[in-house]
Amino acid sequence: MAIRCRNGHENMDGAFFCEQCGEALDGDTVQAASVCAVCGQPNAPGAEACANCGVALAPSSGGAARASRLVLANGVSFDLSELESVVIGRSDPAAEVFPEIDLAPYGGEKEGVSRQHARLQRSGERFTIEDLHSVNHTYLNKQQLKAETPTPLKNGDELRLGRIILRFETD
């Protein structure tokens, strides 16, 4: 028995997604896999640790997160506790770019910070930093990061975006 997607494309019995347009075909709603922010491995929903690299995965519900922050040299601190994924950069209203962590007020443009410079992601108790093809690069403890390659952060790590230095702190 063929299955039709809502756009009318015919698919074989047993298919989950339409081969023509990609629409999900009728069936049970399935909880999405929990993708590890560090290595990209999909894991069963609710898994506590990544089956490939072993890092802690974000809990599916509840659980108080540890307080984590990024601190500028002048002591200004950005709280990361409630965030899953944030872009660090500098706002540019003309281009309608408003990153969650905005370094424009701290000389971002002059210091070589791109509008969307790097992404910080949380996976459970772990954070990763990923350069977003920034012009002046992202450095972790003075090592240049390859673009689009999430790299784990630990307490006390130094991040440099352009010429702005931030310290990652977690309790």
Binding site: F16, G22, V30, A32, A33
Partner: peptide, 14 residues
């Protein structure tokens, strides 16, 4: 249902 396999099925189709 196995969400890990479905994750790949959806992306390969896309």
């Amino acid at each position: 249902m196995r969400p890990v396999v479905l994750h790949y099925v959806e992306r390969v189709n896309a």
